[in-house]
């Protein structure tokens, strides 16, 4: 399991990209995703699912995610999440 111990960001607001900002929260706060996207109505749920999936894979259960989408594909969302997590988790591994 990884713990988010410091704020981080990854990605850009260029077309086809997504800017992910992670902020640590206390364990009881759980996961909160704040998403903005020009395709929120059509793809909001899908984008949110990808974000939640990456967090689940990494065993992260408490973090605030701010996601500013600019039409990113799933593979880009996954990549930006992985980078943001690497930068925020600082390799702290919990038993």
């Amino acid at each position: 399991m990884l713990q988010i111990i410091q704020p981080s960001q990854a990605g850009t607001v260029e077309s086809n990209d997504i800017l992910i900002i992670l902020t640590p929260v206390s364990a009881d706060k759980g996961i909160h995703v704040e998403l903005t996207s020009p395709v929120l109505k059509k793809y909001g749920r899908q984008i949110n699912n990808v974000i939640q999936e990456v967090l689940r894979e990494q065993g992260i259960d408490a973090v605030h995610v701010s996601a500013n989408d600019r039409g990113a594909l799933d593979c880009t969302i996954r990549a930006r999440m992985m980078t943001a997590i690497d930068r925020a988790a600082a390799k702290e591994v919990l038993g």
């Binding site: 990854a10 990605g11 594909l73 799933d74 593979c75 880009t76 996954r78 990549a79 930006r80 992985m82 980078t83 690497d86 930068r87």
Partner: peptide
């Protein structure tokens, strides 16, 4: 460098 590595990895995995 870390971001590009993740991006290329995920693009190659899915495209």
């Amino acid at each position: 460098k870390d971001a590009a590595r993740h991006l290329v990895y995920n693009a190659m995995k899915s495209i």
